[in-house]
Simulated assay, not measured.
Amino acid sequence: MTIATERSGDVLVLLPQGRLDSNNAAAVESEILAHVTAGTNRIVVDFSGLDYISSAGLRVVLVVAKRLKQAGGALVLCRLPAHIREVFEISGFLSILKSADTREDALAAVSA
């Protein structure tokens, strides 16, 4: 799994590619939380390149969302492929996390 990063103003855009599962969840969590610890408090995650997410991956998303909320920031998910969206829907995460269809909409939502 790789995570490319981009900046849009003061918003960090993460672009995970591959599989987010128990094999790499701890490393991914550490990598993202390092950005939060360094002062980033608004993050958009573009899931268009993600092939698979497990419960361990869902936990990473939840931990990051909670940490950002504590820091007065926000997390918005976007461009979820249908099979990834289904995992988030079944888990109930889409009822507690913000999501958008496009990156532009996600950037607007995280800045609101």
Rank of each mutant, 00 (worst) to 15 (best):
M1Q: 06
M1V: 08
M1K: 06
T2F: 07
T2D: 09
T2H: 12
T2P: 04
I3V: 10
I3T: 10
A4W: 15
E6M: 00
E6Y: 03
G9L: 11
G9H: 07
D10N: 08
D10E: 14
V11I: 12
V11F: 05
V13Q: 02
P16W: 09
G18H: 00
G18S: 11
R19K: 12
D21R: 11
S22Y: 15
S22H: 13
S22T: 08
N23Q: 14
N24R: 03
N24S: 09
A25N: 05
A27K: 12
A27M: 03
V28S: 07
V28G: 01
V28T: 05
V28W: 06
E29N: 05
E31K: 13
L33A: 05
L33V: 02
A34F: 09
H35A: 00
H35P: 03
A38Y: 14
A38V: 12
A38P: 13
T40M: 01
N41G: 10
N41T: 11
R42L: 13
R42V: 10
V45S: 15
V45C: 13
V45M: 13
V45P: 11
D46I: 09
F47D: 06
S48C: 08
L50H: 14
Y52R: 14
Y52N: 10
I53A: 06
I53S: 07
S54P: 06
S55D: 03
L58I: 09
L58F: 10
L58Y: 05
V60N: 04
V60E: 05
V60Q: 01
V61L: 09
V61S: 04
L62M: 08
V63P: 09
V63R: 08
V64M: 02
K66T: 01
R67V: 10
L68I: 03
L68Q: 04
K69Y: 11
K69Q: 13
Q70S: 12
Q70T: 12
A71R: 08
G72A: 01
G72W: 02
G72V: 02
G73Q: 11
G73F: 04
G73I: 09
G73W: 11
G73K: 07
A74R: 15
L77N: 08
L77G: 02
C78K: 01
R79M: 06
R79V: 04
P81Q: 01
P81V: 00
P81G: 00
A82N: 15
A82L: 15
A82Y: 15
A82G: 15
I84H: 10
R85K: 10
E86K: 14
V87L: 03
V87H: 01
F88G: 03
I90T: 15
I90N: 11
S91D: 04
S91Y: 07
S91L: 00
F93C: 12
F93Q: 09
L94K: 07
L94V: 02
I96E: 02
L97W: 00
S99T: 14
A100W: 06
D101K: 12
T102Q: 11
T102G: 06
E104S: 10
A106D: 00
A108K: 03
A108L: 11
A108T: 05
A108Y: 07
A109S: 09
A109T: 12
V110F: 04
A112D: 13
